[in-house]
Amino acid sequence: MIFLDAAATTPVRREAIEAMWPLLTSQFGNPSSHYGLGEEAARALEEARERVAAVLGCLPGEIVFTAGGTEADNLAVKGIALARRAEDPRRTRVLVSAVEHPAVAESAHYLARVHGFAVDTVPVDADGRVAPAAFAALLGPDVALASVMYANNEIGTVQPIAELAAAARTAGVPFHTDAVQAAGWLPLDVAALGVDALSISGHKLGAPKGVGVLFLRSRIHAEPLVHGGGQEHGARSGTENVAFSAALAAALRLAEAERPQAHGRVAALREDFIAAVLARVPEARLTGHRSERLPSVASFVFPGTSGESVLLELERASVLCSSGSACAAGSDEPSPVLLACGIAPEVAQTALRFSFGAGIAAEDLDAAVEKLVDALATVRGRGARGGRSSSAAA
């Protein structure tokens, strides 16, 4: 198997398993319990918080553990916007980019549908980048929150987050970034980025599925989405997942330590892979920014084919990749990200995303190129014979 879908998930690192194992077995206490076993769990939770804070360059009290990146995004977008409007009733608008993850986009739509907010979408160019001038033009005293993702999960484009955050700060608007795909590949220092809130998902960087983090700057209030006993500094009630929090902290710290070397090595392999695909498949088009992109993502459209059919042929050849976001469950609609980049719907449906883990080998990528060429030939041959495509049959 050649696994080229690391943007969807990654295997759990041994170090993460070792970090959580005692907290699932002998140290199983509830961190809210005021006796030895509970206090032991509370210490482990705070140590995990301190380790995450050290990577992000923030205070431990600004770290909120969640059930994943989606919850972290929801808490940031809904929670900050609602709290901001409660403080200042004029704050009735939210800004999100046209290429946000559904966790952000749908949270904004919820605010519009249920709470009467207006949602302004910041456009992107053909490479999926937000222009700082276009973003700044939409800011104003009626904006409760602005959210632009650090790096796109489908096309890998990296946004000028520090510049966008600075514009928001000048306008007095809280700024959130979804850094789920950036973690482990790009710097996460929140002071350098200038963000007020930042989301991370554990399973994208070697922790188990079901744990995430929201950095929430201490001066920024967020209305809780989950009410109860007031855990996580009142931001998220419920008994904390101590073991998974420790696993995330271990995985994040390792990923950050390995990041400089991993970034350079994987970026070089990505460039070789992109060059090989474009050389062997002349009609292929790279999507996303050519240089301002994650080292781990190479995404293409293949006009005239069925992306889902090619995906199935690659799976038969033991190459696992994606046709887009793994979080758009059951959707066969064209990707909103690609449409926002000006790609025609029929072309957007031919998209494939190849995303690499830090340990990807050059020979695996070479083999994947050969299998891609074969898969495209098979699908085109089937079409020339008038057969139904795999995606249509599905």
Rank of each mutant, 00 (worst) to 15 (best):
P123V: 05
P123M: 05
V124P: 00
V124D: 00
V124C: 03
D125N: 10
A126M: 12
A126Y: 12
A126N: 08
A126G: 15
D127G: 14
G128Y: 01
R129K: 15
R129C: 14
R129I: 09
V130T: 15
V130W: 14
A131N: 07
A131G: 13
P132G: 05
P132S: 03
P132M: 05
A133G: 07
A134H: 15
F135M: 08
A136S: 12
A137C: 07
A137N: 06
L138I: 04
L138E: 05
L139H: 01
P141G: 02
P141N: 03
D142P: 07
D142S: 07
V143E: 10
V143A: 06
A144C: 03
A144W: 04
L145K: 00
L145Q: 00
A146L: 08
A146S: 02
A146W: 02
S147D: 01
S147G: 02
S147Q: 07
V148F: 06
V148C: 05
V148A: 01
V148L: 05
M149E: 06
M149R: 11
M149L: 15
Y150S: 04
Y150N: 06
A151Q: 03
A151F: 01
A151L: 13
A151Y: 04
A151K: 01
N152F: 01
N152Y: 05
N152M: 02
N152W: 00
N153Q: 10
N153A: 10
E154K: 11
E154I: 11
I155F: 14
G156C: 08
T157D: 09
V158N: 00
V158Y: 03
Q159M: 05
I161F: 08
I161W: 09
E163K: 11
E163Q: 14
A165D: 06
A165P: 12
A165W: 14
A165H: 12
A166P: 05
A167H: 01
A167C: 11
A167V: 07
A167S: 11
A167M: 09
A168M: 10
A168F: 09
A168I: 10
A171D: 06
A171C: 15
G172Y: 00
G172A: 13
G172K: 04
V173L: 02
P174F: 14
P174N: 11
P174A: 10
